[in-house]
C-alpha cells in the first residue's frame, strides 16, 4: 500500500498539486486520471521519488518515503517497477539484455538463473522468441511489453505505469491493460496507473482518482463511474457525443 498525505508541488509561482491525499491499495489497479496538465505525471514522479514534494508525505507501507535517506530510498526502489510512457528501453541492448539489466545490476544470480527468470518474464508478457531483437526492431506494443517484463523481473511490490496505452491501437491497448491487471492480481502488487485512456478506466479501474487542476476531484471505482453525478468526471470520461450516447444507452438498459 502507498499513501500520499497532503501532497503539494509548486514550480516557481505555479502550484501544480494542491494538497492531494489518497491511498493506493495493495493487489489492486489504482488509476490516476485527468486531462493533460492536471498534475498526473507530477504526482507519479513524486510517488516514485523522481521529484520532491513542496509539502506533504509519501508512505510505502509503514515507511515514510519522504524522510528517507538516499540509500534507504534505493532499497525501496528495488521493490519498485515502472513502465514509462515511451518504454525507456535501452537502445544499445537487446530485448533480453534490457529485461536482464536489473538482475545483472542487483542480484548475484548465476547466468542460468538469470536466463530462467528473463524467459519467465518474457513468457508472461507473451514475447517468447523476441529475446535477440533490439528495441528499434520491435513495435510500440512489443516495447511496452518488454518494459513490463523489465519492471517485474525483480518481483516488485509496487508497479507504476505512466500512460501505458499511449500510442497504441485499441486492441493492443486492451492487451496491455489485461496484462497489467493479471500481473497485479497474481503478484499481489500495488499498481498505480496514470492514464487518460477511457477503456482502461472502464476495464481495469479498481480504484480511480480524477485529478482536476491539481486537486482531487473524484474517487471511486469503475462500477461507480456510470452512476456518478460528478460533472467533472462525466465531462472527462464521456467527452465525445459518441461516448455520451453509449453512456445514455447503458443507463437506459440498466433501468
Amino acid at each position: 500500500m502507498i499513501r500520499a498525505v497532503d501532497i503539494r508541488k509548486s514550480f516557481g509561482e505555479t502550484e501544480v498539486l494542491k494538497g492531494i491525499s489518497m491511498t493506493f491499495e495493495k493487489g489492486k489497479t489504482n488509476l490516476i486520471i485527468g486531462r493533460s496538465g492536471a498534475g498526473k505525471t507530477v504526482l507519479l514522479k513524486l510517488l516514485v521519488g523522481l521529484m520532491e514534494p513542496t509539502q506533504g508525505e509519501i508512505w510505502y507501507g509503514n515507511d515514510n518515503f519522504s524522510e528517507m535517506e538516499k540509500k534507504q530510498r534505493r532499497a525501496i526502489r528495488m521493490e519498485v517497477g515502472m513502465l514509462f510512457q515511451g518504454s525507456a528501453l535501452f537502445d544499445s541492448m537487446t530485448v533480453e539484455e534490457n529485461v536482464r539489466f536489473p538482475l545483472d545490476m542487483f542480484t548475484n544470480m548465476t547466468r542460468k538463473e538469470k536466463q530462467k527468470q528473463v524467459d519467465y518474464c518474457l513468457e508472461r508478457v507473451e514475447l517468447v522468441g523476441a529475446n535477440k531483437k533490439f528495441p528499434s526492431e520491435t513495435s510500440g506494443g512489443m516495447q511496452k511489453r518488454v518494459g513490463i517484463a523489465r519492471s517485474i523481473v525483480l518481483n516488485p511490490k509496487y508497479l507504476f505505469c505512466d500512460e501505458p496505452n499511449s500510442g497504441l491501437d485499441p486492441k493492443t491497448a486492451l492487451l496491455i491493460d489485461e496484462l497489467i491487471k493479471r500481473i497485479t492480481y497474481e503478484n499481489e502488487m500495488t499498481t498505480i496507473i496514470n492514464t487518460h485512456d477511457m477503456n482502461s478506466v472502464m476495464e481495469i479501474g479498481d480504484n480511480i482518482a480524477l485529478l482536476y487542476l491539481g486537486e482531487l476531484a473524484w474517487q471511486g471505482n469503475k462500477s461507480e463511474v456510470l452512476d456518478s453525478d460528478n460533472e467533472l468526471l462525466q465531462d472527462f470520461i464521456f467527452a465525445s457525443p459518441f461516448l455520451q450516447r453509449l453512456r445514455d444507452a447503458a443507463l437506459q438498459n440498466t433501468k
Binding site: 521519488g49 523522481l50 514509462f84 515511451g86
Partner: peptide, 11 residues
C-alpha cells in the same frame, strides 16, 4: 528518453 529515470527507479 527517460533512460536515466528508469535506472534511478531501479535503484
Amino acid at each position: 528518453k527517460e533512460h536515466i529515470d528508469a535506472m534511478e527507479i531501479m535503484g
